[in-house]
């Protein structure tokens, strides 16, 4: 019953966002979209000056050692401040069902607000290499998160390649006992434009968590990604499966002794999927 409730609330949030998008679809729309072709990997493109875009995000994180299903939902308003600089504001919520055996815990929570800034340095099509700098700060009820990205991409004919180097610092349990968790991520993606409005490709993610400066895990995810555009709306979907992780190896005395590669379901999920729905306002 609890599972049903949590899932219903998660779906309700997603539906509210979709309804907002639907309502906006009825209004006048321009072609000033900033559509994305990947969901984890960012591109250097920025919104034109004065353009507005609404985006609905749903990230599903499924399968750990125990029962684990989590939905992270975000509603984003993106604003083009100049032809190179954009900012965005997010409202975040999360729903989680976890447990072992007969015990199941369900949570639904407001997960904070975020502020994003992106500055485009060069263009993926017009210049030899597209590039942008990205910063995001999230204020949550129990954590503060700072994220910075260097974005590189290149569009050559019907092929688009993108690479992100991401550094993240999570400060958990704000108060007397703060816990710092640095995260390093590398995202690599490639896609082929089947038509100018439809693309199909692959995304590869390497997510490394370093709590207290020590390697906890470095997980690799790989999977297909698809994107499409229809008038002022666009969508993108990726489904990534964990292919394994670099994990610290311990000797009999419990001391760290090198690393090994294995599937990690203690700290990371078996499947991560993300769906983005955008609408130019």
């Amino acid at each position: 019953m609890n599972i049903t409730k949590a899932l219903r609330r998660a779906l309700s949030t997603a539906c509210s966002g979709a309804a907002l998008l639907g309502a906006a679809l009825l209004g006048p729309a321009s072609a000033s979209a900033n559509e994305r072709h990947f969901t984890y990997t960012y591109e250097s493109a920025a919104l034109p000056e004065d353009a507005l875009e609404l985006e609905l995000w749903t990230t599903s994180r499924i399968g750990r050692e125990e029962r684990y299903i989590r939905f992270d939902n975000r509603l984003e308003l993106e604003i083009g401040l100049s032809d190179r600089l954009l900012t965005a504001f997010y409202v975040n919520t999360e729903a989680k069902v976890s447990g072992t055996g007969d015990e199941t815990e369900t949570e639904y929570a407001f997960a904070g607000v975020s502020s994003e800034w992106k500055y485009k340095l060069s263009d993926a099509s017009a210049d030899a290499l597209g590039s942008a700098l990205y910063g995001e700060v999230t204020f949550g009820p129990e954590e503060l998160e700072l994220e910075a990205k260097v974005i590189l991409d290149k569009r050559a004919g019907d092929v688009l390649l993108a690479l992100n180097a991401v550094g993240e610092l999570e400060v958990k349990d704000l108060g007397d006992a703060n816990e710092l968790e640095p995260i390093v991520e590398v995202d690599l993606a490639a896609t082929y434009f089947i038509t100018p409005a439809v693309s199909l490709g692959l995304e590869l993610r390497n997510h490394t968590a370093l709590p207290e400066g020590e390697l906890e895990h470095s997980a690799f995810y790989l999977g297909p990604t698809a994107a499409w555009r229809m008038g002022p709306a666009w969508g993108a979907l990726s489904v990534l499966g964990q292919i394994g992780a670099v994990l610290p190896k311990e000797n009999e005395a419990g001391d760290r002794e090198g690393v090994h590669f294995a599937r990690d379901l203690a700290h990371a999920e078996a499947v991560n999927a993300r769906f983005l729905l955008g609408l130019s306002l």
Binding site: A128, L161, L163, L188, T208, V259
Partner: peptide
């Protein structure tokens, strides 16, 4: 970052640079 991660990053950066050099620009 793990060794495979560094390798992936390096290979991807090289691929992008090569594509950028070959693909030309506006």
């Amino acid at each position: 970052m793990s060794a495979p991660g560094r390798l992936a990053l390096g290979a991807a950066a090289l691929a992008l640079a090569a594509l950028g050099a070959c693909a030309g620009s506006l």
